[in-house]
Design a binder for these strands. Structure first.
Lengths: 238, 238
DNA sequence: TTCCCCTTTTGGACTAGTCCAGCCCCATCA
DNA sequence: TGATGGGGCTGGACTAGTCCAAAAGGGGAA
């Protein structure tokens, strides 16, 4: 029975993992510079970066574009069956939510959006792009597409608020049936720059198609979550 | 307005993506050798590999350990609310499922398993490890942990079959409430070698805790899916 | 025709650098 | 005190290789 020597990358991962598990590197703290670490582990930056990349895939560390590597904070629980909005969900778990509006406009719908919202070809839709934070960290990029027929003049309101609330208070529209689609994939360029991460980093894409109390499709959202920011949990009754 | 020159990695990604989209590289087909590709794109293997890594994260291509890169087949839909087992789910979507048993034994439960199954400390559990394929491709590594009180002698049966069926036909036990937890993360070593992929590649970890018709916790499974093999879709009524 | 061995190809892992641009901090000046 | 402008540090991106072991493929023997 020969003991196989673990590869350098594995050793680095283990070492860092242990430090994190033991709390020597508290969550949110910055790791030393790549050059420092590669020196510490007596290896090249390329190898060191591969190790960090693996820890990133595991969700143990994350990187901020041009700023360095940090220890990932705890994941937030996301339950698609419980109909609460981002702010409430995050606050309930003792974390601090924040939202910023990146853009909001009326635009021609793409073919894909027309199909999802069941609109005729060449329709216009409201597009609202937002970035959301948990404890100050950018974790979510969302594109909302609203059927303009149901929400005239919605761009005039403060879109930092939860759209759910706006729908209810200003238009008397409430969510009914919802359809979720979750796909582990990578961030596209737009989302990556908004979240200030390197393009191509792993993400969870959640697509929601929302209907109102009468079963009409009112909007859909395209959410790109940092893959290490959430864990989805579903309690199925029966 | 200056046009920024895209990085080499992005260009390679785009080029390959286009070839795939246009069907010039059909799903399941093998890409040329890394050296060939790096020559083709006039770059180094390191850079080429980074590009492939990004496409892998997107779920467009995947790699088989020591065998090369392949175009990813279509994702299979996974609906946690519909209680069908792997075989049925895959077959329903016109794909070919297969299962192999890696190991099956009675073993002391880890602390974590004790907690999840609500067993007293130092209990024994049945552990069944299986690997599953779709159209011949290894996509899922599962560890089942069964409360032995409910399934005496289950190791005697053919464990290639669906456990759901076995539970029903041999023990009169049916699934009731289920709890799901989905976390985008990386494969651990055990799962990676079973699925014949490089350790640390991205994955979706789905944990299920199953109760029977009387609400008793009967087993739990730890599933590691290739991240590009499924998309989770949930239809929420109300 | 089938099986086995040997060679070649290929991916896996890693080294040792370079060049560039954005971030950060500190010192300087108004 | 507060704005500003350098310069050093740091991550991002990339080049140009090496060594090794496993897989694939081909040819010859049974």
């Amino acid at each position: 029975m020969r003991e196989e020597a673990p590869r350098a990358v594995t050793l680095i991962c283990r070492a860092l993992q242990e430090q994190i598990d033991r709390g020597l590197l508290p969550s949110g703290s910055k790791l030393p510079a790549e050059r420092k670490l590669s020196e510490l582990f007596d290896t090249t930056r390329i190898t060191l970066r591969e190790a960090l990349g693996q820890l990133e895939a595991q969700g143990l560390v994350y990187r901020e574009e041009r700023r360095g590597w940090f220890v990932s904070p705890q994941r937030v629980a996301y339950n698609p069956l419980v109909r609460t909005h981002f702010h409430a969900m995050v606050a309930e778990q003792g974390r601090v939510p924040a939202t910023e509006v990146l853009s909001a406009r009326l635009m021609p719908a793409t073919a894909q959006i027309c199909q999802v919202l069941e609109l005729p070809a060449l329709s216009s839709v409201y597009q609202v792009c937002r970035a959301r934070r948990i404890d100050g960290r950018l974790v979510l990029y969302v594109e909302h597409y609203l059927n303009p027929a149901y929400f005239p003049g919605i761009l005039e309101f403060d879109l930092t608020r939860s759209l759910t609330d706006l729908y209810a208070s200003e238009y008397g529209i409430h969510y009914g049936r919802v359809r979720f689609d979750m796909v582990p994939t990578a961030l596209h360029t737009e989302a990556a720059t908004s979240l200030k991460v390197s393009p191509g980093s792993p993400a969870l894409r959640i697509t929601r198609v929302n209907r109102d109390q009468h079963g009409r499709i009112i909007d859909c959202d395209l959410e790109f979550w940092r893959h290490d920011a959430i864990h989805v949990s579903v309690e199925v009754p029966e």
